[in-house]
Amino acid sequence: MSDILQVRGLTKRFGGLAAVNEVDFNVREGGISGLIGPNGAGKTTIFNLITGVYKVTSGSVSFEGKDITDTEPYRIADIGITRTFQNIRLFKNLTVFDNVLTACHASASYNLADSLLRLPRFRREEKTLKEKALELLSILGLADRKDAIANGLPYGLQRRLEITRALALDPRLLLLDEPAAGMNPDETEQLMRLIGDIRNRFKLSVLVIEHHMDLVMGLCEHIVVLNFGQKLADGTPDAIRGDKRVVEAYLGGGE
């Protein structure tokens, strides 16, 4: 299996603090990888560096063999990477359907004149976009909520909607930032199954940040452990579980 994403010597300093320091890891194509570590270990910062939300201090990120370091966030989606946020960021006042429809924009190519004058190309492509949005919503089990306002959805469904919106951009790599945060064990289990289904159905690779050890160990084929901005370990769930340094970082050291 080849690697879809390669991170090399990735460093981000905020003033004197190195939030991420010389981190290397790969994400396997078609795999589900996990990024774990205690609070403040730099997990979300790494997502922000990959997606261009933060500028890299040094190091590089390459996707499908091409260097994408410091690409503008809006281009990252075109390249084939989309993400969700730890504190859900939906288009709050729009309906569930419009949240997904908006994200489908990249599949259309009609121009401003087509929009203003409702030319045939507009009608044709809009119809396709709407079908696509509906199809995604039914795959993700949100079809019956399509007219609800996003902000009014229960928490778990808001997370699901954010994932649906990310999928609307046809990504080849999906970055999920703590998708199970605030979920009960039942919901977490459902989510695990959902992530697995998505990977198989949409044939994409997933990198997930997670605190729930059950979720990470049960779902991921490959795990990267961070601590204080540095990589602590990197390997299969079994290898990680047996790693002394990881246990120390999570449970506190002996001496």
Partner: peptide, 23 residues
């Protein structure tokens, strides 16, 4: 249209609009 929806997305949540590929 998609152009209008993209503007609304900017109003609603600029960062999310960006990672959804909206310039």
């Amino acid at each position: 249209s998609r152009h209008g929806r993209n503007m609304i997305a900017v109003r609603e949540e600029e960062l999310a609009a960006q990672v959804a590929g909206i310039n």
